[in-house]
């Protein structure tokens, strides 16, 4: 089942009267349960493509369909609500709320969805245990290592049961052990729960783990290699 269907999208910026095509005629689709990495040098359009997939930016032309919904049909708060219920985000700098504990951070998104407290707690404890932080539920981000913080971010992204998770350079700030550990957890969640992960990365370790590697250059896909099929 197709989760994402991208039809000939372009994103053009005008810089000092010069048109820059950050993304140029990209056609792409992702199936449920993929574990894919989008790679490419700086300025290749990875971040722009990821922003458009996440509904944080809109294409200049072309269409993006997520779970059958044309993103262009969603306006203002509809788009924000769509993100809340359908897309999970993991950021490079973890971006946790420093005044909340690990449990509260992961719970926050569920609260925005209006999920009852008991249900929220059960789900969040389950997820944090799954990412190996069952014993750090009440720790604030400042008391957690970078790898642990990123695992809280993964738990937060998973909490709302999104259609897919977008991870923008999730391992960029992590050491080797933490990276390995995080990737193992995400791969396990992908394998066992059929959760779709799409990474943008420079990290060779992520590329190695990815089952599909899409390479961008100058806003175009120059290769789309499937390494393993679930």
């Amino acid at each position: 089942m197709k989760v994402i269907d991208i039809k000939n999208i372009t994103k053009t910026y005008t810089d000092s009267e010069v048109e820059v095509h950050a993304v140029n005629g990209v056609n792409l689709s992702f199936e449920q349960g993929e574990f894919a990495a989008i790679v490419g040098p700086s300025g290749s359009g990875k971040t722009t493509l990821l922003n458009m997939l996440g509904g944080l930016d809109t294409p200049t032309s072309g269409e993006i369909h997520i779970g059958g919904t044309n993103m262009a049909s969603l306006k203002g708060s509809q788009l924000i609500d769509f993100r809340l219920y359908n897309i999970g985000f993991v950021f490079q700098a973890y971006n946790l709320i420093p005044v909340l504990t690990a449990k509260e951070n992961a719970e926050f998104i569920l609260q925005m969805q209006g999920i009852p407290k008991k249900e929220r707690e059960t789900r969040v404890v389950e997820l944090l245990t799954a990412v190996g932080l069952g014993d750090r539920l009440d720790s604030r981000p400042s008391k957690l290592s970078g790898g642990q913080q990123q695992r809280v971010a993964v738990a937060r992204a998973l909490a709302s049961k999104p259609k897919f998770i977008l991870a923008d350079e999730p391992t960029a700030n992590l050491d080797s052990n933490s990276t390995e550990n995080l990737l193992d957890i995400m791969e396990e969640l992908n394998r066992e729960e059929k959760i779709t992960f799409i990474f943008s990365t420079h990290d060779a370790r992520v590329v190695k783990k990815a089952h599909r590697v899409i390479t961008l250059e100058d806003g175009k896909i120059i290769s789309d290699e499937v390494k393993a099929i679930h």
């Binding site: 708060s77 924000i80 809340l84 897309i87 420093p98 992204a157």
Partner: peptide, 16 residues
């Protein structure tokens, strides 16, 4: 700003 950007990205609407 970074945190607010994150909250908006993950689905916190303008009203909230």
């Amino acid at each position: 700003r970074k945190e607010l950007g994150m909250l908006m990205a993950i689905g916190m609407n303008k009203k909230k």
